[in-house]
Design a binder for these strands. Structure first.
Length: 828
DNA sequence: GGAAGACGGTGT
DNA sequence: CACCGTCTTCCC
């Protein structure tokens, strides 16, 4: 792959008034150092110390890494310390990404470094390790201390961390031993990830110049040495030493002799840690259907035009979205620009990667969580050097350091994984918009069940709507049955399998096909449901399910949204039935029931319990794919991205569980989820069957799902959102306070809510009552949250930032923690 | 985040 | 007033 490597600063401006000072953000995640510090640029670093460079600077009494965010001519009189070192050959951050980090920090109310760290591959930064050494071993020692010292003696180097882990309650004793001079701490800064190198060899200048005479001067017995020199003479660059030795069938001593004599020199050769084991056969673009063609055309225009353009590609499963992406990317490359392709981590399977590798070969870099730190770093470096044109990756690949971006694709746009859940808690599509604006690029959102946010934007014309309504190979969509579990109960079927599901299962197994059994359970927040009428008990104000709380000696139903609370009903408030109970069936329970009722079936269960081990996920899926089981039973994790040719039946045990999650998006999510699961059935030859069991068969989500009518469902549901002022018509921010003492947590939350009320009085900002968070106690800390909604973040940003910093101080001081989630995607 | 100074309690 | 644990401050 021959690409021109353009790193910014490749062309050095011959400016006589070169800026002599750098504004640096130090690599410390704390709010009071979240500003630029000024440093002198020593003449020696004038060329390398550019915006985006990673530098080493003196900071207080320490040396720290930091990032240059601006170059200036300083006017200040105060003493300015010099930069100590520039840490990379080329700045790891582009000027665009430096700007983006500033925007991100403001948008998501976080520190600048947190944003920069999110943009860089983990492991690039230096890591400080604290080692513990034994200075002296006194004869008389506390037996516990002796035991610890013995353990340390048995290994060469131990970190403080390791000792702490091994001896959990030894903290105080370690401090004491240090003070007594028995132990010593030794802090070392380890340089971050580097390129992997192998030893390479080449002829030295002098050997090359005097080649003829050198050959002649060799003893006739030194045949191998001669061969070496001849081989290296024919080589332009250094050759990895292991390759040379293998080629010439000789050992290390040959080459070492030549090195000693000064004929051969060694040099470190960078090698790529390549995560792909095989070269892929290349393929060609497929012929497009008329619909695909119609969708592709506007995207191509969008790539060519000189401003940002956004598209929503709404295509049913099997309608060939990926081929549209691939051809759009081709057009982008033809324009000399680069492309980012984002997919949810879960669907970043070898098959997905293969599709891109086959079309674009070495021009593709892949970034996902299963790469080793080294592989990830190398892939990132290939991007940074502009050696690749395309990145396929999960969320964080949105920060790929490309310099002329032409296209960003966000596939399965509606997936929740596009929100990062630690700071900066960014929403990927917003980052995409920033970058597209900056680079005048096109953004394509793809989904079979688009998020309401994107649909509304399409309606208002902010993004262009493109639809794929037909399957490429004309397969039938699966047939979806909704089963009324209330009737099952009435007819005396008290099991968790309806008669229809049972019957379908039998048929599937007789035909030696396979099935997925989906248990739709999320969160442990239990809601209360009437098994007779199918109603979940909801908050009278918020249209959100109430959550069942068990306190010491009484139970209560609570609204996590507004704080409304009432006692638990013993009978249904609507129909008076006593068949009322709180829900929460686990996968184990279903597995037991399956074994009881279908003892001959081979079941694979996939949930958090069976997939904690690394690689177990793949192992279980492989076993199922190889037909070593008839049923794959699981939660969300079996809903997405999987493609098993022999699955003809999908069963959903109880759709209600996700329907009644106390979140305004519950309906949207349930529809997306059920559509996704349904899509797992009959993807190949046979038409698939889907059986969805529910206590609320008339619920609009379920009727829409049965008919697969996304548009009608969207039109109806969006009305509720508009009336109740939920996103996308407003935006949520969610504050969370945690503290060991419940009253403190509660009072801090009340104080926060008070501050917010005061700051935004008279503005169209709604602050909801502080309530216990959905998981009210985690790790011994009581959690309270305060939700707020507003129309435009930038109208409240300054005040929010102030409240955030003030409150953070207050909460920290009292020993608690505070976190803030801007544009929260859920109110849980 | 973390070192260094300020602070405030305790003990001879 | 030295000593020590904890809280505050400052870092170009």
């Amino acid at each position: 792959m021959s690409t021109i490597c353009v790193i910014d600063g490749g062309e050095i401006k011959m400016n006589p008034k070169r800026k002599g000072f750098a504004e640096v953000i130090v690599d410390v995640r704390a709010y009071d150092v979240d500003r630029a510090f000024l440093y002198q640029i020593p003449p020696g670093f004038a060329e390398t110390c550019q915006v985006g460079a990673r530098v080493l600077v003196p900071f207080g009494s320490r040396k720290l890494e930091g990032y240059v965010v601006n170059l200036t001519d300083a006017q200040t009189v105060q003493e300015i310390k010099p930069i100590l070192d520039v840490l990379d050959d080329h700045p790891p951050l582009t000027p665009e990404l430096v700007d983006l980090s500033e925007w991100l920090a403001a948008r998501y109310c976080t520190t600048r470094v947190a944003c920069m760290q999110a943009m860089l591959p983990g492991g690039i930064r230096a890591k400080q390790e604290t080692y513990l050494k034994i200075r002296q071993s006194p004869a008389i020692l506390d037996p516990l201390d002796e035991q610890m010292l013995q353990w340390m003696r048995e290994r060469k180097r131990v970190t403080l961390e390791q000792v702490r882990k091994q001896f959990p309650d030894a903290d105080g004793r370690i401090d004491l031993l240090i003070k007594e001079g028995i132990l010593q701490i030794d802090k070392q800064l380890h340089r971050g990830m580097k390129e992997k190198t192998v030893q390479g060899v080449a002829l030295t200048e002098s050997a090359r110049n005097q080649y003829e005479s050198l050959i002649r001067s060799l003893s006739p017995r030194a045949r191998k040495q001669k061969a070496c020199i001849e081989f290296l003479y024919a080589q332009e660059d250094a050759v990895p030493v292991h390759e040379l030795l293998a080629k010439l069938q000789t050992g290390r001593s040959t080459i070492e002799r030549l090195i000693e004599q000064g004929h051969v020199k060694t040099e470190a050769l960078a090698v790529r840690r390549n995560p792909f084991d095989s070269a892929y056969e290349r393929d060609k673009p497929l012929a497009l259907t008329a619909e695909q063609q119609q969708s592709l055309q506007p995207i191509l225009q969008g790539i060519r035009q000189k401003r940002k353009a956004e598209f929503l590609l709404h295509g049913i499963t099997g309608s060939g979205k990926t081929e549209v992406y691939l051809q759009a990317i081709q057009a982008c490359l033809n324009e000399g620009k680069q492309a980012i392709m984002l997919v949810p981590e879960i669907s970043l399977t070898p098959q997905t990667v293969e599709r891109f590798k086959k079309r674009y070969g070495e021009a593709v870099a892949v970034l996902h969580s299963r790469l080793s730190a080294g592989e990830r770093y190398d892939e990132w470096l290939r991007i940074r050097r502009q050696d690749v044109k395309i990145v396929v990756g999960a969320r964080s690949a949105i920060f790929a350091p490309f310099q002329s971006l032409g296209l960003i694709i966000i596939d399965e746009e509606h997936e929740t994984s596009y929100k990062q859940d630690d700071p900066p808690k960014y929403v990927t599509h917003e980052v995409a918009c920033f970058r597209a604006q900056y680079a005048n690029a096109a953004v394509v959102y793809g989904s079979a069940t688009p998020s309401f946010e994107r649909m509304v934007a399409a309606q208002t014309g902010d993004i262009q709507y493109l639809a794929l309504t037909k399957r490429v190979f004309g397969q039938e969509m699966p047939k979806i049955h909704i089963v009324d579990m209330r009737q099952e109960l009435q007819s005396g079927n008290r099991t968790m399998f309806s008669r229809l599901l049972r019957q379908q299962m039998e048929a599937v197994f007789q035909q030696k096909k396979q099935m997925l059994l989906f248990l739709n359970r999320r969160g442990h927040s239990t809601f209360v449901l009437c098994r007779a009428c199918g109603e979940a008990i909801k908050c009278p104000h918020c249209d959100i399910s109430l959550t069942f709380h068990k306190l010491q000696n009484w139970t209560q139903l609570r609204c996590h949204y507004c704080g409304y609370a009432k006692p638990v009903d013993s009978q249904c408030p609507l129909c008076g039935s006593r068949h009322i109970r709180h829900f929460g069936t686990g996968t184990q329970k279903v597995e037991e029931a399956l074994k009881m009722e279908f003892p001959h079936l081979r079941v694979i269960r996939m949930d958090i319990d069976t997939t904690v081990q690394k690689g177990s996920h793949e192992r279980l899926l492989d076993a199922f794919r190889n037909k070593r089981a008839d049923v794959l039973l699981g939660t969300q994790m079996i809903a997405k991205g999987l493609d098993f040719p022999d699955v003809t039946l999908v069963g959903v045990i109880a759709a209600d569980t996700s329907l009644h999650i106390p979140d305004f998006r519950a309906n949207e999510r349930t529809f997306q989820l059920l559509s996704q699961v349904a899509g797992r059935a009959g993807r190949h030859t046979d038409q698939g069957t889907v059986v969805i069991q529910t206590y609320a068969p008339d619920h609009p989500v379920l009727t829409a799902c049965a008919k697969q009518t996304y548009d009608a469902f969207f039109r109806e549901e969006i009305q509720h959102r508009r009336v109740l002022q939920y996103p996308p018509f407003v935006e949520f921010a969610s504050w969370l306070i945690a503290h060991e003492a419940e009253p403190t947590a509660a009072s801090l939350a009340v104080q926060l809510a008070g501050d917010l009320h005061q700051a935004f009085a008279g503005k169209s900002v709604y602050i909801l009552q502080p309530t216990p968070a959905p998981f009210p106690k985690i790790n011994g800390k009581y959690r309270y949250h305060v939700l707020m909604k507003y129309a435009n973040w930038w109208h409240i940003e300054k005040q929010m930032r102030k409240i955030h910093t003030d409150m953070l101080k207050e909460v920290r001081q009292k020993g608690g923690t505070l976190s803030l989630d801007i544009n929260a995607q859920t109110i849980l």
